[in-house]
Simulated scan of single mutants.
Amino acid sequence: MDAAKPNPAPAPVYAPGAGTPARRLLVPLGTLGAVAAAFAYVGLVDPNHPGHYPVCPLFRLTGVYCPGCGGLRSAHDFITGHFAAAVHSNALAVAGYLLFAAGWVLWAVRSARGLPFKIMLGDRHWWIIGTVVLIFSVVRNLPFGSALAP
C-alpha cells in the first residue's frame, strides 16, 4: 500500500517579502487610491452647502460638537488648499491627515523593500490618544475654545 503524501500548505496570498516591488505595492496603492477618491469627492461636493451630507447626529440632538464635527469641511478646505480654514474646521482631522500621509509613506517604502509594516500601539498609547480626543472635544465646546469649533 502506498501512503498518501500530504499536500503542501498553500502559499499565502500576500506575504511582505513575496513578489516584485510593484506587486508588493498593490495594497498600499489601492488604499491610497481609495483615500484619494474620497478626498476628491469631498473636494468636488462642498460640505458647506446644505443637503449634500448628513448632519452630525450628536450635534443635531444636543448642540455639542463631537471630535469629528467639521471633518468634512476640513477635508474640503485641505484638498482645495485652504489650510488655515481646514485647521479651523477640525484641527484634529488635519493632524490625522498628516499622520496618515506619513504612515502611508512608511508603509509604501517598507512594502516596496519587502519588509513588514506593523503599527503596534500599547495600552498607554491608546489612553493618550483617547485623552487627546476627549480634551479636544471638551475644549472645542467651551467658550474659551471656540477657535477649535467648526
Rank of each mutant, 00 (worst) to 15 (best):
I128K: 01
L92Q: 03
M120P: 08
L121R: 11
A37I: 11
F83I: 07
G30W: 07
Y97W: 13
G33V: 10
L25Q: 12
G114V: 00
W104L: 01
P57E: 04
L29G: 01
L92Y: 04
A38G: 13
N90C: 04
G30Y: 08
V87W: 02
A85P: 00
L26Y: 11
F59Y: 15
R60F: 07
Y41D: 08
R124C: 05
T31A: 14
N48Q: 14
F83K: 04
A75F: 01
A93S: 11
F83V: 08
F83P: 03
H49R: 12
A84M: 13
S89V: 09
I119Y: 07
P116H: 08
A112D: 08
T31S: 11
G71L: 01
F136G: 01
V87P: 02
A86T: 00
A112I: 08
S89E: 14
W107L: 07
V42Y: 03
L72S: 01
A91G: 06
D77S: 04
G71A: 06
H49K: 13
G70P: 06
W104Q: 03
T131Q: 11
I135L: 15
C56N: 09
L26M: 10
V42G: 03
R73F: 02
V27W: 00
P116R: 09
A34R: 08
A86N: 03
L106I: 08
L44K: 12
G68L: 04
A37Q: 11
T62M: 08
L44V: 11
M120V: 11
C69A: 00
T62H: 12
F117N: 13
L25R: 12
L44A: 15
S111W: 03
G81V: 06
H49Y: 11
L92K: 01
L121E: 13
G81P: 00
L92A: 10
A40R: 09
P116N: 07
F59K: 05
W107S: 07
A75M: 09
A38F: 14
I128Q: 04
A112P: 03
R124E: 14
A95E: 05
A85D: 06
A34S: 10
G122R: 09
T80A: 01
F100V: 04
